Simulated assay, not measured.
Amino acid sequence: MIDPEAFHDAPIVRLSSEGDTVHIEVEEFALSSVEMCPPSRISIRHCREILRDGVPVSEMTAESEDGEIYGIDRDAGGVTLSIIWSRYEPHAEWSVTYRLVGARLDVTTLWSTGEPSVPEDID
């Protein structure tokens, strides 16, 4: 079981939405200052509503080519993601908080072939 409160430093490779599900593939992520986990897919399912900094949006989309998850929090009402987006020309960096209402979260480790392994539920 992965503790989402320990999850951080996860560079985003791909972000996609399908219906009420958001998939985020990350290069790797840290669970502590010494424990790094392999490339993985974060699936956030059963989203009833998505809020971007408190404002409803129709879907969650990548805001830049470079993004990093620096925090995940979950509670009975859903999942909250904190992401830093960066742009290099001209340089800009901004943080966004997404609230996925009613959602549940699981993480699937990706093998080197890019194929998923068995999902690990972190709810």
Rank of each mutant, 00 (worst) to 15 (best):
E49G: 03
A76E: 10
E27K: 11
S64I: 07
P4Q: 02
R48K: 14
G67K: 14
V55M: 09
A103R: 01
L105D: 05
R41G: 01
G19K: 10
R104A: 03
S82M: 07
I72S: 04
T80L: 13
V57D: 11
S58R: 14
L15H: 08
I84C: 04
D66G: 00
W94G: 00
D53K: 08
T109H: 09
E115P: 00
T80M: 13
E93G: 07
V118Q: 10
I72E: 03
H91Q: 03
L15E: 05
P4S: 02
V26R: 03
S40E: 08
A10R: 05
M36C: 01
D75F: 10
A10V: 06
R45K: 07
I12G: 00
E59H: 13
E27Q: 08
E49K: 11
T61K: 15
D73M: 10
S33A: 11
L81Y: 03
M1Q: 07
G71P: 02
L105P: 07
F7K: 05
R52D: 00
W111P: 01
S64H: 08
D3G: 01
D73P: 01
V57W: 15
V13E: 06
S40N: 09
V26P: 03
A30Y: 06
D73K: 12
A6Q: 12
V22C: 00
S40T: 09
T113G: 12
E5T: 11
S86M: 02
P90A: 13
S17T: 06
M60L: 15
P116H: 14
V57E: 13
V26S: 03
L51R: 15
R74K: 15
I42E: 03
S17L: 03
I83H: 04
M60W: 15
V22L: 04
G77A: 10
C37A: 15
M36A: 07
T97M: 06
A10T: 05
T21Q: 07
R45E: 08
I12W: 08
F7P: 01
V118L: 10
G54F: 04
Y88V: 00
L15D: 03
L110K: 11
E49M: 06
L81G: 02
E28N: 08
D53M: 11
E65T: 12
V13L: 14
P116C: 04
D73T: 06
R74D: 09
G67M: 09
P38C: 06
P119I: 09
G102E: 07
S16H: 11
T61A: 14
I44Y: 09
P4A: 04
V34R: 13
V107L: 15
S17A: 10
E63D: 11
L31S: 10
H91M: 02
S33E: 12
L100A: 09
P56F: 08
R45I: 01
G78Q: 05
E28M: 09
F29I: 05
G71H: 09
D3N: 11
S95H: 05
E63Q: 15
H23E: 05
V55G: 02
E68D: 01
A76H: 12
E120N: 09
S32C: 00
S64V: 08
I12Y: 12
P4L: 01
H23I: 01
M1T: 05
D53F: 02
D53A: 02
S40D: 07
P38T: 03
P56N: 15
V34P: 01
H23W: 09
P39R: 15
G77S: 13
A103P: 00
L51C: 13
T61E: 15
